[in-house]
Amino acid sequence: MTREKNDGPQGRPEFQIFKDYIRKKGLRYTPEREIILREIVNTGDHFDVDELYLRLRNKGERLSKASIYRTIPLLIDCGLIQEVYYEDGHMHYEFIYGHEHHCHLRCLECRRIDEFVEPSLKKIEDRLARKFGYRVVGHKLEVYGYCPECRKKLNLR
């Protein structure tokens, strides 16, 4: 999945979505929150709070981890990011606004992540909705194992 790089919020709908959401919640749209969102949008990769914090610090930004931890739930709630997986005591997230829904294959050895779209999952959603009477609004699928390189290195079939 290709993610477009951008250095600022000018004309970007995700920044306006976040501003509107923050204001509806009665909160302030702070420069810190904008810096956090900008870094997430520009990186376009899976991240955890520690990685995001270090990237921002390395760029000279003076933000606390607490600011990031307080901003993450707001970004999830307004639909800009989602939780992807939990590993090594940290939740990992990804920017999802404007991106096609996808699932993940994750290597347990090297931590490589391959994103994929599987159209047959829609049929499974439909079948489950009928069977259990649900209105399905989405799914999150993570498949984990060993990538081809790690399988070779570990001599796994």
Rank of each mutant, 00 (worst) to 15 (best):
Met91Cys: 04
Gln82Leu: 08
Leu141Gly: 02
Asp126Asn: 11
Ala66Cys: 08
Val143His: 04
Lys25Tyr: 11
Val117Cys: 05
Arg23Met: 08
Arg38Ala: 05
Tyr69Leu: 12
Cys150Lys: 14
Thr30Glu: 13
His90Asp: 12
Tyr144Leu: 03
His90Glu: 15
Val49Phe: 08
Glu14Asp: 04
Tyr144Phe: 12
Glu61Asn: 14
Gln82Ile: 10
Arg70Lys: 14
Phe95Leu: 03
Ile35Asp: 10
Leu105Asn: 06
Lys140Asn: 06
Phe116Asn: 03
Glu115Pro: 00
Gly133Asn: 10
His92Cys: 07
Glu87His: 09
Leu75Asp: 00
Phe132Met: 06
Leu108Cys: 04
Ala129Val: 06
Lys152Gln: 11
Tyr86Ile: 01
Asp20Glu: 15
His92Ser: 10
Glu87Thr: 02
Thr43Trp: 14
Lys123Ser: 09
Lys153Leu: 11
Lys5Cys: 03
Ser120Pro: 01
Gly26Glu: 12
Val143Arg: 06
Glu61Phe: 14
Arg157Thr: 02
Leu54Ile: 08
Gly138Asn: 07
Arg38Ile: 01
Tyr134Phe: 14
Pro9Glu: 14
Lys122Met: 09
Asp77Phe: 07
Gly11Thr: 02
Arg157Asn: 05
Asp45Val: 03
Gln10His: 06
Glu94Asp: 11
Glu118Gly: 02
Asp20Gly: 12
Ala129Pro: 00
Leu121Asn: 06
Ile72Leu: 12
Pro31Gly: 05
Ile76Glu: 07
Cys150Phe: 11
Ile76Leu: 07
Pro9Val: 02
Lys25Trp: 09
Tyr144His: 09
Asp20Met: 10
Val117Trp: 12
Tyr29Met: 06
Arg38Leu: 13
Lys5Phe: 10
Gly89Phe: 12
Asp126Pro: 00
Pro73Phe: 13
Gly138Thr: 05
Asp20His: 13
Arg23Gly: 00
Tyr97Trp: 15
Arg70Phe: 10
Asp50Met: 12
Lys5Arg: 12
Glu125Ser: 04
Asp20Pro: 00
Ile36Leu: 07
Lys24Glu: 15
Leu128Gly: 01
Phe18Cys: 01
Asn155Leu: 12
Pro13Lys: 15
Phe132Val: 00
Leu52Tyr: 04
Glu87Asp: 14
Met91Tyr: 15
Glu125Pro: 00
Gln16Cys: 02
Gln82Ala: 11
